[in-house]
């Protein structure tokens, strides 16, 4: 219910942009977003939480113009072994998630300045 009001109040227009850069939106990001909109996270710790999520930055190519600027580096392509990479992915996710979980459950998370107060 609050999300549409939040978006209406704080959204940034993306009209006129070809590339949008932001936090990588994977499951760790949605974990943080969910806790945030449920008023489980104090906004003061949000930047630290996002960093702990080990999210990195992702780029969204929004327009035809942006795609046309891409160049393929065939020599940079690598074939990777699922059985080698998947455990690394799982471990990285687990470590990031445990760090976020610990921060959310710590005294640093005062839960005073929360999402619903932003509306």
């Amino acid at each position: 219910m609050l999300a549409p009001k939040f978006i209406q109040k704080y959204q940034v227009s993306t009209d006129g942009y070809d590339v949008i850069k932001g936090w990588r939106a994977n499951a760790s990001y949605f974990y943080i977003a969910k806790c945030n909109v449920r008023d489980e996270v104090d906004l003061d710790i949000l930047p630290e939480l996002l960093k702990l999520g080990d999210l990195g930055i992702q780029y969204c190519l929004k327009t035809e113009k942006a795609f046309q600027c891409l160049r393929e580096e065939v020599s940079a392509l690598q074939e990777i072994e699922y059985n080698s990479v998947n455990p690394q992915y799982t471990e990285r996710d687990r470590v990031a998630r445990e760090a976020m979980y610990a921060l959310i459950n710590s005294d640093k998370n005062k839960i005073e300045n929360v999402f619903s107060k932003l509306i």
Binding site: Y31, N86, Y89, T90, R94
Partner: peptide, 9 residues
């Protein structure tokens, strides 16, 4: 088994 990719779907 804690496979992150599936666990977070």
């Amino acid at each position: 088994a804690g496979q992150a990719y599936i666990s977070t779907m």
